[in-house]
């Protein structure tokens, strides 16, 4: 009895982000944006904090409770979106969704960095929602912001 494809999901870089999450914490500065998102079917939870200035993401942090896939995804996402415009970040979220569903996601000029390690999720359909949770949280944050304006 042995694992056939488990290491395609739990890559080293993913487990490293899970064990040593980047940007874990809260932002206390004025003008910070926050959002909470749950995955009600499994109980995973992500809280995002962001500073957006002139439509650019200056800082992003997260707190969360969940599995290695959702939390490593949050860690990688906060790294990747810093410095992007809101539109760029939303576009990246779209590409990310494509990637974890096993669709073509490559696009010139978009740097996925460590995030590419999560493409193994595509072979584990039950875990797609874990991977997309922080990204959906980010989308919700921007949507709330737009509606508030």
């Amino acid at each position: 009895m042995s694992f056939s494809q488990l290491d395609q999901l739990y890559r080293r870089v993913i487990m490293d982000h899970y064990k040593n999450p980047r940007n874990k914490g809260t932002i206390d500065a004025d003008g910070k944006l926050t959002v909470n998102m749950n995955n009600p079917t499994c109980g995973d939870r992500v809280e995002l904090h962001m500073i957006v200035e002139d439509n650019k993401i200056k800082d992003a942090k997260f707190l969360g409770e969940g599995c290695s896939i959702s939390l490593s995804s949050a860690s990688m996402m906060t790294e990747a979106i810093k410095g992007l415009t809101v539109e760029e970040a939303l576009h990246m979220s779209e590409l990310f969704s494509r990637m974890v569903q096993g669709k073509d996601y490559h696009e010139e000029g978009v740097d996925f960095g460590d995030i590419g390690a999560l493409q193994g999720v595509a072979k584990f359909p039950a875990r797609i929602k874990c991977a997309t949770l922080p990204w959906k949280a980010m989308e919700k944050l921007f949507l709330n912001e737009r509606n508030a304006d």
Binding site: F3, L6, G66, C67, I69, A126, R127
Partner: peptide
């Protein structure tokens, strides 16, 4: 995490 345990067992 329990999800990771369940994924591994499912494998």
């Amino acid at each position: 995490h329990a999800h990771d345990v369940a994924t591994a067992l499912d494998n």
